[in-house]
């Protein structure tokens, strides 16, 4: 054994970890934003009467949900260029994570859309709103408020999934942790601090998002 803890090396490079954390949060935020749009569009197709569209959307959701995210990341980054779609590391990762998030959110949104009372649409029609106006000012806002808790937990798990960007050398938190580990050999310290970064961030995010949920919740 004979291992004495020494945090000096990690402490010296702590700014790298913070930079990595910043990028991780940005990646997660971008992915949930785009993922919400994809999920919303997919959910509307899933509940539409269009047969072909519906099976296509269901196929997308099932395929993504049953494929490991790391395989998707590597596929987008290494295989898609062979089809002529060449993306930078960060773009490629955000692209993959958005599509991944979209598949999970589509299911969440589908259920939530179905549980918006039918009467709200009729009330909107009765005052002369168009279908589009009803969707944008009534159905989607009501639905989104109902799924805020799921959105929060999706965001937190996306944040954790950003660690996989290290696999294609995107300089996020895990990437820097590995770098510090390899350069300093302060193995325990590095990984302890790195996981603390994740755990503490997740906890703070969860608390912040709970405040947001309370704020945005429909008052009763």
């Amino acid at each position: 054994m004979g291992y004495t803890l020494n945090f000096a090396a990690v402490w010296r490079d702590i700014d790298l970890l913070f930079m990595g954390l910043g990028l991780s949060l940005v990646l997660a935020a971008a992915s949930i934003a785009i993922g919400c749009l994809i999920g919303l569009a997919t959910a509307f197709v899933l509940i539409s009467k269009q047969r072909a569209g519906r099976s296509l959307a269901a196929g997308y959701v099932t395929a993504i949900r049953n494929t490991p995210i790391l395989v998707l990341i590597l596929f987008t980054y290494f295989a898609l260029p062979q089809l002529g779609l060449r993306l930078g590391k960060i773009e490629s990762f955000v692209f993959t994570l958005s599509i991944y998030a979209g598949a999970y959110l589509a299911e969440v949104f589908r259920g939530a859309l179905l549980s918006v009372p039918k009467g709200l649409r009729e009330a909107g029609l009765a005052i002369g709103l168009s279908e589009w106006q009803i969707k944008s000012s009534i159905i989607i806002p009501v639905m989104l408020r109902n799924v805020l808790p799921s959105l929060s937990s999706t965001f937190i798990s996306l944040f954790k999934d950003t660690s996989l960007a290290a696999a294609i050398a995107v300089p996020e938190l895990t990437f820097y942790a590995r770098k510090i580990n390899n350069e300093s050999f302060r193995v325990i310290e590095t990984w302890l601090i790195a996981s603390l970064f994740y755990v503490v961030t997740c906890t703070i995010l969860a608390m912040l998002l709970r405040v947001v949920e309370k704020r945005m919740a429909i008052p009763r």
Binding site: P117, G119, E122, R145
Partner: peptide, 11 residues
């Protein structure tokens, strides 16, 4: 139109 279930927009 006024509905049996009010149908006010809850948000």
């Amino acid at each position: 139109m006024v509905f049996q279930q009010f149908n006010l927009f809850p948000h």
